[in-house]
Amino acid sequence: MRRYTVRVNETDHVMDVEELAADTFTVHLSDGRLVDVVLTDHQDLAQAVIAPQVEVGHPRAPAPTAGSVPGLATPAGPGPSAREAHAAPPPAETVHPARPARAATRSAAGARTVTAPMPGVILSVAVAAGATVQRGQTLMVLEAMKMKNDLKAQREGTVSQVFVSDGDQVKHGDLLLEFQG
């Protein structure tokens, strides 16, 4: 269980996210409601399209707090049914909870982090903190199922931190590297 505190319009909201499976979560909202969330897609890309299926306990109730969880957007106010899938803008500093983002939302500012696309072993890390990389540049090599896979930068930028080193075992979704800004 992870506790997130997010600030929307100067108001702090606390929510607890319980990971039931790799793609199934239960979100406990501060007002006591439980929201079941199924993550149908997850990519740490510049072109990330994240479309969680949100099932709210009280379908009519607006849930502005949920909209501020990265990757979890529920529409504020009446309109689309609660079961409808929505895309949230990728994690960004400012979030607009009232905007019902549609699936086509694409943002270039998104991919601040690089995570492991599959389980494996980091064979080599090609960049260090402070390095400036171009889009498409190899960041590290991940060996999965005895195959070497180049993990390449989805965006250009400066590497702020590398979390793994040669020989590290990683699981799917593990944080590997972070960009500045």
């Binding site: 790799a22 793609d23 993550l39 149908t40 897609d41 997850h42 990519q43 599959m118 699981k171 799917h172």
Partner: peptide
């Protein structure tokens, strides 16, 4: 086409 991978 990208496919989500869930590690079970």
């Amino acid at each position: 086409i990208k496919m989500p991978y869930t590690q079970r």
